[in-house]
Amino acid sequence: MTDIKLIIFDIDGTLIKVGRHRIEPSAVEAIRAVKAKGIKVLVATGRTLYFVNPHVREVVDSDYYVTVNGHCLMDREGKILIRQDLPIEAVKRMHAFCVEHDIALGMKCSDAIYVTHNFKRYYETYSEGRDVTSIILDDTQRADHYLSVEAPMGLFLIGNLDILKENAHLFPEFTFSPAKPGCMDAYAHDVNKTKIIEEVLHRHNIPWEQVMAFGDGENDKEMLRKAGYGIAMGNAKPGVQKYADFVTKEVDEGGIVHALKHYRILE
């Protein structure tokens, strides 16, 4: 058995198949077994905490939450320990770009996502059929919450993103990471999940060599590379898998359990 002290889980495409809302049953039991062995767990996601399904929080009972692609570190109760906001001038330019090219734009703040352009498209796509009217708010009339109340920690864009890819050089302040089809995360170029995870490792004196990390997305590549045991899901693209030490099965084929058994953390 490997000497693992901490296991990091991405959510979408790792614990939950994209388009679903609950952790695969085999992964539920695996997480409980891991925690029973005294191994700490940490969720690292592009989502804000209020958009993490309560089922996920209940099952994982994460010691920490790294949210908004590393812009925010929270404890298990949801208290913000560290946060980094996006540069306002760059956000202004992005808002103007999205209005010009009719790209729906949501700004991830601490209490809700404030949509500054094309609320209807944004809500229909992001809500996935759920009632999330309390945490996706229409700011299209004034489009000033990020200026007058709170700077966002991240952006989420929905629409024809080819034009954004062609003009990404206009926004050197941002890293763009594909989410589900037609959707893109944007976060600060000098921020990623790994940097804020290192704060947790420092607090608990855990070296990267004793960390296992599961992920499937572009925003997981660095933590897969840094972890002593980087596990890419079978549904991850080849460009992500190449950063991993081991490629497990797909999320809905028992990928979490398969990797834990491969490294003899579970029998």
Results as ranks from 00 to 15, higher is better:
Glu24Lys: 01
Asp102Asn: 15
Lys261Cys: 07
Met212Leu: 13
Lys242Ser: 09
Phe9Asp: 04
Asn118Asp: 15
Asp245Cys: 02
Arg142Met: 06
Ala186Leu: 12
His202Met: 05
Arg130Cys: 04
Gly255Tyr: 01
Ile16Thr: 08
Gly46Phe: 12
Ala232Asn: 12
Glu209Gly: 04
Leu6Tyr: 03
Glu267Leu: 08
Ala213Arg: 07
Tyr50Gly: 01
Asp139Arg: 03
Thr67Gln: 04
Asp190Ile: 03
Ile23Val: 14
Val91Gly: 12
Lys237Tyr: 05
His101Cys: 08
Pro181Asn: 09
Ala143Trp: 00
Lys242Trp: 00
Ala36Asn: 14
Val66Gly: 02
Val56Gly: 06
Leu86Val: 08
Asp144Gln: 09
Ala44Gln: 08
Gly106Gln: 07
His202Ala: 14
Thr194Ser: 15
Ile158Asn: 12
Ile113Leu: 08
Ile8Gly: 02
Gln210Arg: 14
Ala27Arg: 07
Lys40Leu: 10
Lys180His: 09
Phe9Tyr: 12
Ser134Lys: 14
Asp61His: 10
Val251Met: 07
Ile163Thr: 13
Val43Gly: 06
Gly38Pro: 04
Met94Ser: 10
Asp138His: 04
Asn53Tyr: 04
Asp216Phe: 06
Thr248Lys: 11
Ile23Glu: 08
Ala30Asn: 07
Glu124Pro: 00
Val99Arg: 12
Gly129His: 05
Asp10Arg: 01
Ala179Cys: 08
Gly19Cys: 03
Phe97Val: 09
His202Asp: 13
Glu166Trp: 00
Ala259Asn: 10
Gly234Tyr: 05
Gly78Ile: 04
Val247Gln: 04
Met233His: 05
Ser26Tyr: 00
Asp75Pro: 01
Ala151Ile: 00
Asn219Leu: 05
Asp10Cys: 01
Asp139Ser: 02
Asn53Leu: 01
Thr194Ala: 15
Ala232Gln: 10
His204Trp: 13
His71Pro: 00
Tyr263Gly: 01
Ile196Val: 15
